[in-house]
């Protein structure tokens, strides 16, 4: 009874990456860069906003990175990455024309469809803007289906602001509110200074009919939820994206567990009450 197993079928193996070629690799800020990729086999990587992939740099390893491109243009796979370790450093060094391994997409999505008919508030901290951008694109593509749209974004310093050109474009629209704040000001900065959660109180939305999508450091998300609920937004209307160091992204490795949740499969996007209790306990 020799089992019949197709050894050639690498796509069936969830641990084997597909090959993608680098179209562009450019710096956004001092420590963030954006990789624009295209599948070698020509098969676009279809994804939902909020999902992530595992990116492999030859010989260095693999890291989970949220997709930050436009879901309606899946032919070009875009990730904005912060350089924090050896793999993200190696990925930064891959030149145009070089190859990168990609597995995915994995995980849950931002509730863009569910948000139709509601006001939408995006709250982003630092690199947390990258996983939110696909949802923002989708909302703006179908702008008429939503009520008020606000993007509240906090960066460390003016030099750390991501997607500056796009932010300026979005800010010039009459159908959305864009507020940007920095933790530490620099010469020439005339904008807000302070934590992003402080912007929530100065944003116009109807709390009863609002969907909030929040992504940033865990402490920032806790404060954002407190501000939002303080304004009357129900916890069930708040969605957060969590981060852990996934090694497999398919529930095999156990690294990303948060209590009963595998962040790779059950997340990274959660409706807040699902993770509320565990986020309030230290070292879970």
């Amino acid at each position: 009874m020799q089992p019949s197993i197709d050894v050639s079928s690498s796509p069936a193996d969830p641990m084997t990456p597909r090959m993608f070629r680098v179209l562009r690799n450019y710096n956004d800020t001092a420590d963030c860069y954006t990789l624009s990729l295209q599948a070698e086999d020509g098969d676009p990587l279809l994804f939902a906003p909020g999902q992530f992939t595992m990116l492999y740099a030859f010989g260095r390893g693999e890291v989970p990175i949220s997709i930050s491109g436009d879901p309606s243009d899946p032919g070009t796979l875009i990730h904005t990455i912060r350089e924090v370790g050896p793999v993200t450093q190696a990925l930064r060094e891959v030149k145009k024309g070089g190859l990168i391994g990609v597995r995915g997409p994995y995980g849950t999505a931002w509730p863009v469809k569910e948000a139709e008919g509601n006001d939408v508030v995006f709250v982003a901290g630092g690199i947390g803007l990258a996983p939110l951008r696909p949802a923002l694109y989708q909302v703006l593509h179908r702008r008429s289906r939503f009520g008020k749209v606000a993007l509240l974004y906090g960066a460390r310093t003016p030099n750390d602001i991501l997607y500056r050109d796009e932010l300026e474009k979005w800010r010039s629209r009459f159908d959305m509110q864009v507020e940007v704040t920095v933790d530490r000001s620099q010469a020439g900065w005339r904008g807000h200074v302070g934590v992003v959660t402080r912007l929530i109180s100065r944003t116009g939305f109807d709390p009863v009919n609002t969907i909030a999508m929040v992504c940033g450091p865990e402490v920032m998300m806790r404060f954002a939820v407190a501000e939002l609920t303080g304004r009357g937004v129900a916890q069930e209307q708040i969605h957060v994206s969590l981060e852990r160091n996934m090694k497999c992204a398919v529930g095999f490795c156990g690294h990303c567990q948060l209590g009963p949740a595998f962040i790779c499969k059950d997340g990274p996007v959660f409706v807040f009450p699902e993770v509320k209790r565990l986020l309030s306990i230290r070292e879970v």
């Binding site: 050894v7 690498s10 193996d13 084997t16 090959m19 492999y56 024309g97 070089g98 190859l99």
Partner: peptide, 19 residues
């Protein structure tokens, strides 16, 4: 062992380990 990545003229390719 999961797989092997091998450099080639195109960049590199991945040889999955047969189960």
């Amino acid at each position: 062992h999961l797989w092997e990545a091998v450099k080639d003229s195109e960049g590199f390719h991945i040889l999955p380990d047969p189960p």
